[in-house]
Computed example of a mutant assay.
Amino acid sequence: MVKKQLNTGVIGFGLSGKVFHAPFLHTHPGFNLKKIVERNSTESKNIYPELEVVSDYKNLIKDETLDLIAICTPNTLHFSMVKECLLAGKHVVVEKPFTPTSKEADELIKISEEKERKIFVYHNRRWDGDFLSIKKILKDNLLGDLYEYEVHFDRFTPDLDQNWRDKNIPGGGILYDLGAHLIDQALNLFGYPDKLNSNIQAQRANSPVDDYFKIELEYPNLKVVLTAGMMVKDLGPRFILKGSKGTFTKYGIDPQEDALKKGLMPNTQNWGEEKKKDWGIIDIIIEDEQGNYQIETLPGNYMGFYDNVYDVIINNEKIMVKPEEARNVIKIIELAFKKNITKLQL
């Protein structure tokens, strides 16, 4: 039993609002999905007939019954909308990346502290099954001393899209889009790095924004490689970890996004479970003998993000994605765009 329901509104019903937020707010008993902003349609009403569809986001900001607003808009609108929501006394969920600049993120953090309202940045890939499995592998010290961590987020999309992600605007491009996920995961595992090196390119013909990156983060005795591209037809491993006892290699991607795009709800049976063929392979030395075997991927659980949102607001529990951590993701992106080796300071 939940203590109370949080009345919630969602701004935007594109990929983010439709796939990554509304299904969880609808099925979680702690939230009452009350309103959704759609400027040009009422598509959400077909899925959630009980809610109210409005065309102006200010309707949500002025609604005194709403406790929480989820902002699922293009990156250029994050700063202004989060600010308006905080000043109106609302708690806020905002899609990653937090803001296009770390300066904007710092300002929002300050406002949230002054208004005693929470900002939750949706770094949902912390709840990917493969990432949860890697955290357990490292916690159990199965690989010994880790000296290399490499992760890919590759796709084959040779044609430019017409959406905002492929436009030369603040927060556009692959580094802000997919890179934010990989950077957040790395910082969550290893903290802020000592050095950074980057290679950022626009590989597709006439692309106005970056569509490839390779970032290297350096830590004492550890190299972290984060890379993604839109011109990778034959996908290789997603994760490659190398340690003093052996390696872990993982292909495939968490199944939750695909399930959500098919219209499944996160209370579906066996949610987030991965097929055995996609489980990772660990190759390690066990009692002086080589051992090679599959490790079952832990179920992914994006609902864990909203579990934490509820527990922070209602039960005053610790926030799992601190806004300062999300701000640090933006700092890394800003440094990466300098395209050189930089000594980082907190």
Rank of each mutant, 00 (worst) to 15 (best):
V232M: 08
M230G: 09
P193I: 07
G263R: 13
G12R: 13
D211K: 00
T247N: 13
C72R: 06
L196T: 12
W127A: 03
P220F: 04
H21E: 07
R155C: 01
K195T: 12
G280A: 02
D254F: 11
L51A: 08
K18W: 03
K135E: 10
K339G: 10
P323H: 05
L189M: 07
F20H: 15
Y212Q: 08
D307G: 07
Q345K: 08
K118G: 09
Y176F: 13
M81F: 15
F190R: 01
D283P: 01
Y57I: 06
P299M: 08
D234H: 10
I47P: 02
Y147I: 11
D194V: 01
I281V: 02
G179A: 01
V151K: 13
D210H: 14
K167Y: 05
T342N: 09
Y310R: 08
V232H: 14
V209M: 03
W127Q: 02
F120E: 05
K262N: 10
K343R: 05
D210R: 15
N221R: 11
L25V: 03
I295C: 10
L182D: 08
A228P: 10
S244N: 00
K135S: 06
I61P: 06
N59P: 05
I111R: 14
I109W: 05
I313Q: 14
K58T: 11
V121Q: 04
P158F: 08
K277L: 02
R204T: 00
M265K: 11
E113V: 05
T73Y: 13
I183M: 07
I286E: 15
N168Y: 08
R125E: 14
K34A: 15
E216R: 10
Q290W: 15
L178R: 12
Q269R: 07
L142R: 08
H78F: 12
E148P: 00
L178E: 11
L138Q: 05
T157K: 11
K18T: 06
G263C: 09
N124K: 12
V209I: 08
K262E: 07
T27R: 09
E257W: 12
K90N: 01
I137A: 11
I319N: 07
R155P: 00
Y192L: 14
G291M: 15
D140N: 10
N206A: 09
R165F: 15
D184I: 02
T99A: 13
I134C: 02
D210C: 15
I71P: 07
T65A: 12
K34I: 12
G12K: 14
K83M: 12
N168L: 03
A228H: 08
P299K: 13
L33H: 00
V53H: 14
R39F: 12
E84M: 15
I71R: 14
V53D: 12
K35S: 05
L138K: 04
K115S: 13
F190C: 02
H91E: 10
F20V: 02
V321R: 08
K62C: 04
I333S: 01
A228E: 02
N292Y: 04
L196N: 13
G14M: 01
P49Y: 01
I333Y: 04
F248A: 11
H21G: 09
K4I: 13
P266V: 06
G172A: 15
V94I: 14
